[in-house]
Structure formats: C-alpha cells, structure tokens
Design a protein around this nucleic acid. Sequence first.
DNA 1: CTGAAAGCGCTAACAA
DNA 2: TTGTTAGCGCTTTCAG
Lengths: 350, 350
Amino acid sequence: MVNTKEKTPFSNITIIDVAREAGVSYGTVSRVINDSPNVKEETREKVKEVIDRLGFVGNRSARSLVSGKSHVIGLLIPDLGTAYIGEIIRGIDMELETARYNLMLYTTHRRETKEAGYISSLIQSGVDGVILILPRNPAKYLEKLRSLNFPYVLVDHQGIDDRGPAVGATNFQGAFDATEYLIQLGHTRIALITGSMDLGCSQERLKGYQEAMKKHALQIEPEWIVEGDFEQTTGYEKALKLISLSNRPTAIFASNDMMAFGAMNAVRDQGLKIPGDISVVGFDDIFQSSQTMPGLTTVHQPLEQMGREATRMLVEMMSEREIKPGKIELPTRLVLRDSCRNLADSRNNG
Amino acid sequence: MVNTKEKTPFSNITIIDVAREAGVSYGTVSRVINDSPNVKEETREKVKEVIDRLGFVGNRSARSLVSGKSHVIGLLIPDLGTAYIGEIIRGIDMELETARYNLMLYTTHRRETKEAGYISSLIQSGVDGVILILPRNPAKYLEKLRSLNFPYVLVDHQGIDDRGPAVGATNFQGAFDATEYLIQLGHTRIALITGSMDLGCSQERLKGYQEAMKKHALQIEPEWIVEGDFEQTTGYEKALKLISLSNRPTAIFASNDMMAFGAMNAVRDQGLKIPGDISVVGFDDIFQSSQTMPGLTTVHQPLEQMGREATRMLVEMMSEREIKPGKIELPTRLVLRDSCRNLADSRNNG
DNA sequence: CTGAAAGCGCTAACAA
DNA sequence: TTGTTAGCGCTTTCAG
C-alpha cells in the first residue's frame, strides 16, 4: 500500500494525454467525449480506442466548472427510518438513471433549526436541482428556492402550498374509498385517526372520510375523530382512547399504516379481536402491511411512481431552467386484506 | 418565473466580486474562506462581512478541480428495500456530517451484470472514497478499487475476503448466543435457516449455531439445517419444510429477521402457535422485529454504529491516501422478546 | 500579511 | 473536420 501524497488522485490521465496518444488536439477528444457530430468516424474510433486503452475517465469537476451544471440532484429527506421513503427513492433512482443524473442524499434528522442552512448548503454543494420529501411545512425552504429560481419538486406534500411543483397522491379519494368500503361492509360507527393536521395530506384524508360518511348519511360523533401524527405509538394511544368510548366505533381508519399497526396492537392488548371486534384500515400500503396478522387493509400509495414522476418534472425544469408550478396527483388504490370485518357475514368474526 | 438561459446558475457571485467589494485581492478572500491563519483579523472581518452581505456561497466544482478532492463519498447499496440498510445509512450520515462530507447514493438494483461499470462511474463521478454494502461477493469491485488504491470500506461483508478494510458484527458470537439461549430454554431440536452461503456472515452464523450445539452435546439432524437467502418468502417455505419433518424441531433460528417473519407466518399458517408450539429467533433486530405479535427475539446488530465506524475508517483512509487493510467487528447482543418458549415453564405455551 | 499569477481539466467559440 | 485558445472559479505558490 503505497502512500502517494500527490494531489490528483485516481485518474491522473487527462484529455491531454488522450489527445497526445491519439495524435489529435484535445479539443477533438472533447468532441468525441461529448458525442459531437462534427468528428470524422475514423478519428472518433481512434480516440475511443485510446480512451479505452488508457482508461480515461474524465474529470467531473472540470466539466461542471465550465458547463455550469453538475448533473447531480439533491434529495432532502427527514430520515431513512421508514420503508415509505425507501420506495419513493427507488422511483427517483430509476428515473435518474435513465436521465443520467447522480443522487446526493441529505437528511435533516428532524433538526428543524437548521432548515434555512440546509438550502444554502444544498446549493453550495452544486446540485442542479432538488427533490424534497419533508414532513413539515417547508415554507422556509421554498421561499429561498423560489427566490433563486432553483429547480425543485415537492413529493407528497400537496395541500398547504399550492404554487410549487409537487407530486402527491389522491389523498381525498383514497380516504373516501376506504371509508366507503367500511360502510359497505356494514360499519356505521367509524373512527378516524388523522395525521398531523399541519400537513395537507392529513387534511385531504380527513375530508375524504367526512365526505364518505356524509354521502351515506352517517353521523360522525366528535370523539371519533382524533388527531394523530403518523407515529405508531400515537396510533396505539389514540386507539386505546377510541376503544374506551361508550359509543365505541366498530372500525378505525388510521391515516397511515404505522398508526394502524399501533391501533392493531392496542385492540389486541384490550383483549379484542381484529377484525372480529374492531376493523382497522390504514393508508400507504408499506411493505409491512402485507406481513401483519391479519394483513392490513389499506390505501395503496404509488410511492415508487411518485418518485419517478417527481424526477421527471425536475429533470424537465432543470433543462428548461425555470420552475413550473403545478402538481400531479397519482391515483391511490384500496388494497383488501383481512383486517376488516363484514358485519353482514357472521362467519367473519375474527 | 423568468426563463433565464444563462450558464452559471444559482450563485453567480464569485470570489472576485467579494474581493472587489471588500477592497482586497481575491487571493485574500480565498484565505479567509479557507481559514488560513495568515490574515489580519481586521481584513478577515471585513471580508466575512462582505461574504455575508453578498450571500457568496462558493463554487464547489472550481474548488474540487484545483484541490483534487470533492469532499463527497459514494455509498453503493443493492437496494433501499430493507430497513436494515436504512439504519446503516443513518450512521454513515451522522458521521459524515461531523466530517463535513456529502453522500452520493448509488444503487445497483441487483443488476450484477453492470458491476464492473459501477466502479468506473463511481470514480468518474469524482467521489473521494466509497462505502460498499453489497450482498454478494464484491470481488470484481474490490480488484479495481485496490489496483487504483481508491479508498473504500466494506460494511457487513467480512468472511470471504480478509484483506480489505471492512466493518461487520460478531456474527459467530451472535449466532452462538442465540442458539445457546434456546438450549437454556430447554430446546434440543433446534433448526437453522441459513443465509446465502456465499456470504461470510452466513457462514459465521452457521458456525456459531453448530458450535453452541456441539458445546452442549446436542445432536444436529442434517434436515434441520436448510439454506436460505435472507428473503422473507424463503423463510416461509423453509419453515414449512421444517415443520413437516417427522423429527420436527421445537425452535427455528433464522439467519435474519426477514426470514424469521416468513417462518412465523408459516408456523401460524400450519395452525401452530408461537412460541407455544415452535419458538423462533431472528438476526438483525430491524425495527419491525419489535412490532410483530409476538415480538421477535433476535440478535441485535449495531447497524448504525457499523455505519459510523465504516465512515470513520474511510475518512481516515481518504486523508492518508492509502487503503489500510483490517476489519472491525462490532458486538452483537441478544434481544429477548416473546417468540421463544421456555420448555420448563408450562405457563408459557403461547 | 497581502497581491499577483500560474494553473486544475475541460467546453465551446472561433479559425483554419 | 480539426486545431487553437479563452476562460469557468478557485487554491496555492511566490514575491513583496
């Protein structure tokens, strides 16, 4: 293991070396690299041969410096903890590959104090655009991004701010469908554990629930709507509260799967059965939802596709150098598993 | 939304602007930026003030070009699908923050055909070093990396190749502990679902299991050891096979949690109870393991810490410009939950 | 302590 | 079709 303290590290051979070896000017080598049409086929072949032979890889920094773009996009996320984000990233990543971009990952680790600084450091790190998957209202970020006309896309954050480019899912419709499904199963006492109410998606889901209940002329007791925050433990606690109600609901609709898991645990801890005594529905359809016992009936969000779509929008904005407002809503889909009881069916008593 | 087609994008103000505004040469500005000691305090103050006022952020590419380093490290992973990787990344990310590096994410998406090309593109993208979390034998990668003396660290991949810098966990000891725990609970017929046997960690875990059985003079029936591949469905299938054995084991030790989940489902689908009829132990202690019913007893791997440690090693190698062989093994820890039955305790029959 | 200036490797405009 | 060359923004000698 030689300790080489030289400066330029792992591809010391440059465009000039290639040029010399191929017997052309280095401008020509540059043309070959960039697939310029103005190169004689013969020359192109020769240069390519030399590139391969020498193992030339090109210097990204130099290229970025002169071209003014890094071909890297930044992804800002709160944390890697949830499978939810992983699926979105997969979509981003796949799309980025076809667009030939690289992905720089930034996690806020919930340190909201540093919000403002993050954008600066994002920009400073030279990314060409940024995708934001943020739990809270990212107003501070957006303000700066917009004022700089810096390309960005918000994922799963529609509702609060209508101007920015964003991709989300049909939260209203998804919640509506889930609620109506429960109603069709014969449920009339349906509770809702909302998400954090400062998030647009939480509000949309609440509205979907309310609308479905209203459509079927069902009364909503005020105690049936409790505010959650997307955390499993909160789902547990709120479900406990719901279960202890005198007019106990027969079904609990949690605004995400994690809270639904918490609710399922709470139901079981009270010695009740799922779906025999209480039915549970979630939202997201993360991987674990198919693995619980019983499997969780939930609203599927097309997370991977959301990632892809966001990336497409961003790539387009980057190439056109302008932020285009407008948002895309991808359709959700109710996934039926075994956590809901059909009240008309006496066999299905969990 | 103005469509500005100019080239240099989002921080058009340069070191020269700052210099002019501050009335110094731009070399001095550079010194201030780089915390060079040779600057009069008064000058430093003034320059800093101008930097703030103008909102100067500096051009990463230019800096990288001249310094020969990007202050970015690459992370190569197979996929974001598992919580397992998320936890390692969290550790990497935290450590990187203190080291003031950025993280570029590359996923192979299991496309092993492109293995060789990945390293080239990693290097081409100008990262200063790379952390590899790879499921299969990364010999092809390592060869190239080594020949270039390119800093890298392998995470959770010890066993096959002993030379390279790597950080892992005490797989042997962890498996030994888990098996011995089962034995102490009174189990004598203990089955093992291995991981992919081309992986060092799988082999270590197998050895740990064998050693514990041997230590307690317990017979291992050949049918009790079945090869898995870390996938949940495989855990399900293999457990099914195990359950149907005439000399059915009373406990199943799965080489990771995902397979343990599969095994749990299989046990239940056969109308058997956990842990009443069959005890299950996993390996990893991913988040979900505490969420299943019953909670999964498993071997905790210090994933986050592994990420941190790997990053520290890499940062050191990058600064010293040499690959230092040697690997670190972080201790595992058995986490007791409710998926194992104490055979001496008649109450605990699940 | 500070200014001047030589590049880092590359793209792209201009000539030939 | 190809060569020449002016920078991109910055770090880092080398003088002073």
